[in-house]
Amino acid sequence: MNIDKKIVDDLVANDVSFVTTVPCKQLAGVIDEVENRDEIFHIPSNKEDEGMGLCAGAFMGGKRPMIIMQNTALGVTLNTLATLTQFYRMPLPMLISYRGELREPVACQVEMAVHTKALLAQLNIPTYHFHWQKDVEEFDNILKYTFMSNKPVAILTDANFWGGYGDQ
């Protein structure tokens, strides 16, 4: 199974048509796939809170938005999640690369990984963790749940899910 393609197929099937991204090595394939799909408008942002602002506007304009980012970005988006996305009750699926987990080669990434689930829990953000490739089967249901509940929802995707880093 090509998980990049499966994820973007699910986005299209759920009418998600406005996607903003800040890259992570693990997300390179899915970002390419988003960029290449005609059904999706891809707008790279320079910082993830900016991206969440774009998503809030797109949602109010009638589009279903999504953000693709690294877990380290949680640090710069807490205020936006609380005072914009949650305060105004807007849906936002967040596909997040969960750096600093098993098979991580870069020690610094662990420093935000140890806070990631605690921060999401503190914000009462529904959180799913994809560790095995088959976990992607849940993605379609998570998207439906996000737009049903009008909440930000986190999908953490670790290195094992993406197939590791190869030789590093």
């Binding site: 406005f18 408008f41 900016e50 809030a56 506007g57 589009k63 938005p65 005072t83």
Partner: peptide, 22 residues
């Protein structure tokens, strides 16, 4: 009028996302 009650900095981003979407 969409009034921002918090989130300093994002007026341009919210408005721009809205302009792109409709």
């Amino acid at each position: 009028n969409f009034y921002m009650l918090g989130t300093m900095g994002l007026s341009s981003s919210i408005g721009f996302g809205l302009a792109l979407a409709q």
